[in-house]
């Protein structure tokens, strides 16, 4: 059973006016059929302007389709009176961690969502503590966000969504503005949420190394879905990935080159460890 399903989703800006100056790239969608199962960890990759961000904003009704349908847990996102139901089921984390924190104290910020939903005070307290612990930021609950690192701020933003107890979290390039350490913190936090709490995760990114552990990778370009499959299936097509302005891990690239020049390799490696194991078997 699909938790999120888009049917022939199309989106374009009606007029120049609507095209907010802040996203000058024309992100349009052109007949996207995308679905996510409950508990799944899906990565959507594509270069800037491929439409992946626009897709993410349709999953919790921030944008509404100009053609086709989006269903969240069976509800059409165009049903206006279900808007907040949809947003509490699917939380969206944005790219810039600085611009999505509302309050000057970490725990107050995390409480913002449940407060808006009218949750009882004791229950908010419980959810805030739980959410902060889940992203490993509990000890920073009384800090001011502007003094934290990018990775920490982004984890607070995730906790803010978690406190609404959603079924699914969509992250729109959450690591694009972070340093490697921040990236790792954020990716391991969301991987843990998926594995331990069964939360459905949709990760939008162009950093291929972040997608190695997910269940399914979806490749987008020009507002369409080009290909999907397990990370191994997708990354094995080195030429295809390259052609669509994306990266493959160096480990995969090296072995694909060796494969092309005649070395027999059954399973292309995705990370350094797999590559070392494979090549030491071949070379030693």
């Amino acid at each position: 059973m699909e938790f999120i399903k888009t049917e022939n989703l199309s989106f374009y800006y009606e007029s120049e006016e609507d095209e907010i100056q802040f996203d000058t790239v024309q992100n349009v969608l052109d007949g996207v059929c995308f679905s996510v199962k409950r508990g799944e960890f899906v990565a959507v990759i594509g270069h800037n302007g491929s439409g992946k961000s626009t897709l993410s904003k349709h999953l919790n009704a921030i944008l509404l389709p100009t053609g086709g349908k989006v269903y969240v847990d069976g509800t059409d996102t165009q049903e206006e009176d279900k808007l907040y139901d949809i947003r509490r089921k699917v939380g969206l984390v944005l790219q810039n961690p600085d611009n999505q924190l509302v309050a000057s104290i970490v725990e107050e910020d995390v409480a913002f969502g449940p407060e808006n939903m009218g949750v009882e005070p004791e229950e908010i307290r419980r959810r805030v503590d739980k959410a902060l612990k889940a992203v490993d930021m509990y000890e920073y609950r009384l800090h001011a966000p502007h003094k934290l690192s990018g990775g920490q701020k982004q984890r607070i933003a995730i906790a803010g969504i978690l406190a609404m107890e959603p079924d699914c979290i969509v992250l729109d390039e959450p690591t694009a503005m972070l340093d490697p350490k921040g990236r790792e913190e954020v990716i391991s936090a969301i991987t843990r949420l998926n594995r331990e709490q069964g939360i459905t995760v949709v990760l939008i990114t162009h950093n291929m190394e972040e997608t190695v552990d997910c269940h399914r990778v979806v490749v987008m370009d020009k507002g369409r879905i080009l290909r999907e499959g397990t990370p191994r299936e997708v990354f094995s097509q080195v030429e295809f990935i390259r052609r669509h302005r994306l990266d493959v891990p160096q480990a995969t690239e090296l072995c694909a080159k060796l494969q092309a020049s005649g070395l027999k390799i059954d399973k292309l490696p995705l990370d350094a460890k797999e590559c070392i194991d494979l090549l030491s078997e071949v070379l030693i």
Binding site: P249, Q250, A251, E253, L254, K257, L258, D271, A272, C275, I276, L279, S280, L283, I284
Partner: peptide
């Protein structure tokens, strides 16, 4: 990543140069 891979292979006895920096160089040597 490519440096990490080749350094480890070198440690395990594969005759590669030290401090390989690009996929091309690693590919040529292997």
């Amino acid at each position: 990543q490519i440096t990490k891979i080749t350094t480890e292979l070198r440690k395990r006895g594969v005759p590669l140069s030290e401090g390989i920096l690009t996929v091309e160089q690693a590919f040529d040597e292997i």
